[in-house]
Amino acid sequence: MEHTSTAERILRGIAIGAVVLFFIFPIFWILLMSFQTNETILRNPPSIAFVPTISNYVALLTGRLETAAGTLDISFMQNLKNSVILSVSSVAVALLLGVPAAYAFARHRFRGSEDIAFTLLSFRFAPPLLIVLPLALYFQDVGLADTYIGLIWVYQLICLPLILWIVRGYFEDIPADVEYAYRIAGHSWFATFRKIALPLAGPGIAAAGLLAFIFAWNNFVFALVLGSADKQPVTVGALAFVTASGIQFGQIAAAIVLSIAPTLALAIYAQRYLVEGLSLGAVKG
């Protein structure tokens, strides 16, 4: 027997509906826009009825943008590819470096460990532009400007502290006794790290990785300053839609849809795993 009355249930439904609408509406609206031409988008008064077109997507995929002022070449697909390369590599490098470091910070209190950990976090405090401008000059000198490697390196400013601090918390949540038990059973510290710490912190590592991926994907400033057109991700590439003859809202919408699709897919795929892991029932045994 449920105690909630019918009225209460209806009210609850309405409340949930309102919240969902509030968050979903912008995404839904952009989805609609991506299937309209600039003219239908900008007509006054606005109307919900329109004849859907896939011309925006075609333009993005073929790289040729037809505008009133003539044909424009855009490198959206190249930008998308850059986004994928930059984000995936950055997160991979950050996980490779950050997870062992997080483990060290969580399990070993060495001299200055707190200071080092805090310094790493403090990279997140500085305004990115302030770091990037001087860095641009150095990069010119050492030949890292406008290279993937240079950009991935700079992206560590975003990814590494994030992963380090989130994953450290997950390692700290694993009871030390569980690791002691494995070592006393006869395994080296490295085996203990691989077979106990990593699997138990796995969901946390995945969550941190996903978050770092989203931050890296959405980054704008680093690539704007340090990369040229053929290394720039979609965030910077979207500037191309602001043309001399006006803003191409339809294409921007389509570009947004295409660029959020990977992160969204990843998040949905990982969701069940994340929720299970974040509740951390597994470690409590």
């Binding site: 009871p175 006794d177 006393i184 006869g186 080296s188 106990i196 470690v283 045994g285």
Partner: peptide, 20 residues
């Protein structure tokens, strides 16, 4: 001598089983 080379068996108050 690290713990893994001491040939010891240990049981803990909170069991410390490997949950996975």
């Amino acid at each position: 001598v690290p713990p893994e080379l001491r040939n010891i068996g240990m049981a803990f108050q909170n069991f410390a089983l490997f949950p996975h």
